[in-house]
Design a protein around this nucleic acid. Structure first.
Lengths: 133, 133
DNA sequence: CTTGACCTTCCAGTTACTGGAGGCTTTATC
DNA sequence: GATAAAGCCTCCAGTAACTGGAAGGTCAAG
């Protein structure tokens, strides 16, 4: 399989696949013409990477997950730990965004949004922030 | 005021303030010794930037907001539009993260997380993704 | 034999900073 | 007055994860 084939099958752009090779996530062989030659193992790894990335794991997470994926004797607890840490990061990010949303929608609602210059949004932004830590 | 003063008053690191000057968000004068000399106007702008960034506006958003902030004759509708677009981005991001959280916590719950190698998380990650678009 | 689709490498740019080196200036202390 | 610490300066490089583009080799079809 050439890079275009695995790109369409994994859903990853060819550029990204080359990048993943650059940073050592995959190691496809080469044909005599210099083209990358992917086997089904590499395709599986790419699929794995696409799915992990779509769930928000960082590349370094993916590297760790991939080595666990390939280690037939790993403990599922190792995987679960990584996943739980990531879940916690996601939850924190959601909370942060929700707080932003509440604050900003409060401001938007106060703004009449017509052609007058008076604007509570800008007025508020000029104030020092009170972090609701 | 030197950079350290406005840094502590605005909450922005001095490094970040220099960076904001580099990209043209602020234009502090200079003392004869080469030190940046901030007046209260610049401090207000930095405060404005700190608050806008903490609400997740991009630097380019901030640039636009800042020019509206400085334009005494702008229409509040212009500001409201920017803010509403940003609210929509936040809402989309929240939805995306929630979807990740649901999927991943489903996987984590299925994983027994002990020292056996069998792991539903890795099994799933190896599957082609079904995008619930 | 040429056209067009693929493939290759390499370089640069993106976002919003952050760290560090090397070197002035100012302030405090002895 | 000497010195040391703190604060300021500029410039360079690195971060995360790609993405775009240039310049050029290869392959299949007509």
């Amino acid at each position: 399989m050439n890079i275009g084939d695995v790109a369409s099958q994994s859903g990853l752009p060819a550029k990204t696949i080359r990048y993943y090779e650059d940073i050592g996530l995959i190691r496809p062989k080469r044909d005599s013409n210099g083209y990358r030659a992917f086997d089904t193992t590499e395709l599986h790894k790419l699929t794995f990477l696409a799915r992990s990335r779509s769930l928000g794991f960082t590349i370094e997470d993916c590297r760790a997950l991939l080595s666990l994926y390939e280690d037939r004797r790993r403990a599922s607890a190792d995987v679960k730990l990584l996943a739980e840490e990531h879940l916690a990061r996601i939850a924190r990010k959601i909370a942060e965004l929700k707080a932003m949303h509440v604050t900003l929608s409060g401001l938007v609602n106060k703004c009449h949004g017509d052609d007058r210059p008076d604007c509570p949004i800008l007025d508020d932004l000029g104030q020092l922030e009170e972090m609701p830590s």
